[in-house]
Amino acid sequence: MLSKRGIMKSLCGIAAVGLFGMATLASAQAQNAPGILQSILQRGTIRIAVLGSLPPYSRVMPNGEPEGYDIDIAKRLAEALKVKPEFIISDIPARVTALQTRKADVTIADFTRNVERSTSIAFTNPYLVTTMRLLLPANSPYKTIAEANEAGIRVAISRGGTAERAVPANMPKAQIIRFNTQADELNAVLTGQADAMAEDNFYNGNAIKENPGKLREAEGDLARAEIAIGLPAGDADWLRVLNLFVDQFNASGDNKKLFQKWFGFEQPPIQAKY
């Protein structure tokens, strides 16, 4: 028989985790900081969360400095505010939690905005619009997304990304295989562990170029995604400044130039047609 003490010990452990959660909550709520804009101007630096490895959006160079399209946008933002950029290299969870714990003032990290996500952080207007498409091995027999769906293929996707809804909606017969990084998805396709992957067409274009003769895209689109700058929820003043920055960055043609520099082709239109 199990002893009462053993069971009590288990219950105490479970209670401790609950308390830890509450403590995190309490410390987050105890913060009563001034507005983010004031903090940045007083500090003279803006803290920007970026991804460590998502070229050409961002990557960390051997000397430890980040570079890429998102990094150049961050530098423009710092320049416009007349402060110094301070980069916080993050992964997929950290680019979000850095905002929620106020360790970062903004996140510029290929963020796809939607209403569900905007209940926990805020997003600016988009600076990029991507189209999700199906990336296949070059020798795959399927020409279109519809054909691939009929065959019930295995599609590699990013956990919790745009593909979570887009793939079942467009390919109800496909079997979904989830990975943490795009590199793992691509490995799965190249080694035959998946029949295809669903990623944005900019990523796909790069992958096709880097694996000559091995990959191609299927005809048809899976989803449209709006890429935006993320910021902590609840600071309307900071959102006002960032939206003005994004709007002028788009309208001035600076965005087009940076995009051309990092992706090597012309930026598709940001405005939706409806």
Binding site: T97, T119, G160
Partner: peptide
Amino acid sequence: MQTVGSSSFRFF
């Protein structure tokens, strides 16, 4: 944990 965190941005 990863899937739901990334979907909802409620990692905590």
